Simulated assay, not measured.
Amino acid sequence: MKKIYFICTGNSCRSQMAEGFGEKYLTNWQVKSAGVETHGLNPKAVQVMVEKGVDISDHTSDLIDLDYFNSCDLIVTLCGDARDRCPVIPKNVEHIHWGLIDPAQAKGSEEEILKVFRKVRDEIEIKVKELI
């Protein structure tokens, strides 16, 4: 079974959503996510994923597991910070970078913030589907 790792800064939003969609669509892959730091699972990420029928409420915010990282077939970084700070990717591991904005940094009313989360979520879903 192939292995994929979705990595962002804090493993709270983007990589968690990617892991959720990966679990849904990449049925022949072992799917995990991690961060170069841990910020806890963002409740707004959980909320907008439920709207798509994907429950990530049992996910945890985890640091990169080097054993898994080094044994992956594909590593996807979801922000420049993660791309710049993650360990050196082995030459035999494919790397894709998706430069996505951090929805946790969104400002405004609750609805404006959720709109940003939904936009990022939808971008991630499209990109994960393209991996099939």
Rank of each mutant, 00 (worst) to 15 (best):
R83M: 11
P87K: 05
H97L: 03
R83I: 01
H97I: 01
R85A: 13
D73P: 00
I126G: 09
L100E: 04
I113V: 15
D102Y: 02
I113H: 09
V128S: 02
K107E: 14
E125V: 01
A104D: 06
V76Q: 02
R83W: 10
I113L: 06
G99M: 11
I126W: 06
D84Y: 07
K91M: 13
V76T: 04
R118I: 07
R118Y: 11
D84L: 00
V116K: 06
K127G: 00
C86W: 09
D102M: 05
K127W: 02
C79P: 06
R121S: 03
E123D: 13
A104Q: 05
L100A: 00
L100P: 03
V88S: 13
H95G: 08
I124R: 04
P87C: 06
P87N: 08
I89F: 07
A104H: 05
E94W: 00
C72S: 12
D122Y: 04
D73R: 01
D81H: 13
V120Q: 13
C79N: 14
K107L: 12
A82G: 08
R121F: 04
P103R: 04
Q105V: 09
F117E: 00
F117Q: 00
V93W: 10
K107Y: 08
L131C: 11
K115H: 14
K115Y: 11
D81F: 11
I113S: 10
G99R: 10
I113G: 03
K129L: 15
K129P: 09
I126Q: 14
K115L: 12
E94T: 13
I89P: 00
V76R: 01
V116Q: 07
D84T: 03
L100W: 08
K115V: 06
V120E: 09
D84H: 11
R85P: 01
P90N: 00
P90M: 04
P103A: 07
L131K: 09
R121G: 01
W98Y: 06
E112C: 05
E110G: 04
K115P: 06
C86R: 11
E94L: 10
A106T: 02
E125Y: 04
K119W: 13
D102E: 10
L114A: 08
K107I: 14
K119Q: 12
D102L: 04
R118D: 10
R118K: 13
K129E: 12
W98N: 08
D81V: 12
A106G: 02
K107M: 13
F117T: 02
E125M: 07
I124T: 10
E130M: 15
C86M: 15
D81A: 01
V120T: 08
A104W: 08
V88Q: 13
K129Y: 11
T77P: 05
I124L: 06
G99D: 15
C79V: 08
E111W: 01
T77K: 08
E94A: 14
L74I: 14
K129C: 11
I126P: 03
G80A: 07
N92K: 12
R118W: 10
L74N: 10
H95V: 09
V93A: 09
C72K: 09
E112A: 14
L114S: 07
L114M: 14
R121V: 02
V76A: 00
V128T: 04
K129R: 15
C72L: 06
V120S: 09
T77E: 07
K127H: 03
P90A: 00
I75G: 05
E123F: 03
E130K: 15
K107R: 14
L114G: 12
G99F: 09
